[in-house]
Every structure is written in C-alpha cells, then in structure tokens.
C-alpha cells in the first residue's frame, strides 16, 4: 500500500499538473484572505474557513478526476487488479495520496494565521480546530469524488459529476433552499449538510456529531468505491 501511495503522490510532483493545481489553489486562497484582512479589515480566519469549501468544490474534483478514470482509459486497471494488492488497499492508497496533497495545500496557507498571530491577537486553538474541520470536510468530499472517478473513463465526465454532486451537498446547507422548502424538510437536510457540520469546527467546537458525520460519510464512499472495484464484469 505504501508503494502505491508513493507512486500516486510522485505522479503529481513529476508532472506540471501538480504544481499548477497547487499554485492555483494557493493564489485563490491567499487572494481571498488578503481581501478580508486589508480591504474589509477583519482579523479573523472565520471568513477564510467559510470561503474554503467553495474553493474546494472545484479543487477536489479537479485533483481526483483522473485517479481512476485514467486507469480505466489506459487499461492499467487490469494491471493493478491482477497485482498482489487488494481492492481496499488500492482505494485507500489513492485516497490517502490525494488527501496528502490537500493537506500540503492547506499547510501552504498556514502563513496566513501565523501572520495574524504576529500582528494581532487570535485564539490559536480555534484556528487549529478550523483546520481539522476543513481536513475532515475535504476527506468527505474527496471520497465522493474518487467514487465518481471510478464511474467513467472520461476525466471530464468524472469532474462534472463530482462537481454537481458536491455543489448540491453544499447548497443544501446554504440559504438557497430556505425560502423554498418546508421547515421540517430543512431541519432534516441540515443534518446531512456538510457546511452546517463544518460551521461547528469554524466556531472552534469539536462536535462529536460533526466528527462522526464526516468520518462515516468518508468511510461510506470508500466502501462503495471498494465494492464497485470488486465487481468484475
């Protein structure tokens, strides 16, 4: 599993695509943050963590669209599935490789809270909990995108299906539906809304329900991906 994990990570650092994705992510995030600090004059990471899901909405499908689609297109899936490595190891290796890349990108944003910590007074544990929340949120979205990458040989199709699905998930916790749906339906949807659960982390709270939501959602889609991979037709 370590071998496959290393191979997947190396792909992104041996090709321009990895650097392009990292640069675009870093540029977007830093721009959004700087806008808040210097233009709106808010010394807080809350807005940053609130923007981040909408950036990850595009970033995660873009990062994961090739992870299985390309293997299906080039038929290296046949090679992979006949090596002494289980389907579970394949999925988890690929998931961890992509999650590592996301974490690397998030580490690159640490300059922002460090700057804030030097120049103003901020509550560091709250920021750390925010980052934990973003990583858990990213894991959940990543597991969904990887699942859809297995569904198509075409990377663009995988990207679009992931994007639409993740957009719907983000939308159910936004104000988009508040004027349309009955209140009891909204209350049910809120439980399944990733943004609602992320809000707890952004507030600095380690809510067990939110931790379980992201963990179980991630595990569910990893299991679904493994089961799909085990189907041999």
């Amino acid at each position: 599993m370590k071998t496959l994990f290393k191979k997947e990570v190396q792909f992104y650092f041996n090709n321009p695509i990895g650097y392009i994705v990292i640069s675009l992510f870093a540029a977007t995030i830093n721009f959004l943050f700087i806008k808040d600090i210097f233009i709106v004059n808010i010394a807080s990471m809350k807005q940053f963590f609130s923007f981040l899901p909408w950036v990850l909405l595009f970033f995660i499908p873009a990062l994961s669209m090739r992870i299985f689609s390309e293997e299906k297109r080039t038929n290296t899936m046949e090679l992979l599935l006949t090596l002494p490595i289980t389907e579970t190891q394949i999925v988890i290796s690929k998931f961890l490789a992509l999650l590592s890349l996301i974490v690397i990108n998030l580490i690159l944003t640490l300059a922002l809270p460090i700057y804030l910590a030097i120049s103003t007074h901020i509550y560091i544990p709250e920021i750390l909990v925010g980052y934990v929340g973003i990583i858990m949120f990213s894991s959940f979205f990543l597991s969904i995108s990887i699942f859809f990458s297995l569904k198509s040989k075409n990377q663009i199709v995988s990207f679009l299906i992931s994007l639409i699905t993740l957009f719907i998930l983000l939308s159910i916790s936004s104000d988009l539906f508040s004027g349309i749906l009955p209140k009891f339906v909204q209350d049910i949807l809120i439980f399944f809304a990733p943004l609602s659960h992320l809000q707890n982390f952004i507030k600095g709270t380690l809510d067990l329900r939110s931790i379980l939501f992201f963990l179980s959602g991630t595990i569910l889609f990893i299991i679904l991906t493994v089961l799909d991979l085990e189907k041999k037709d």
């Binding site: 071998t3 090709n15 046949e78 090596l83």
Partner: peptide, 29 residues
Amino acid sequence: SRKIGYLPENNPLYGEMKVVEYLSFISSI
C-alpha cells in the same frame, strides 16, 4: 496473484514513469 505473472493484452503500462521507476514499483509490490 503472488503465484501468477500476467502480461495483459496490449501490455498496459504507466507511460509517464521511467522503466526503473515502474520496475521498482512492481518489484516492491
């Protein structure tokens, strides 16, 4: 899979890897 060595039809390979990297990957697994 530990007892069988398989060469699939059309020999799918990871073209972006060097030969040394690919064989190192396979030999490790």
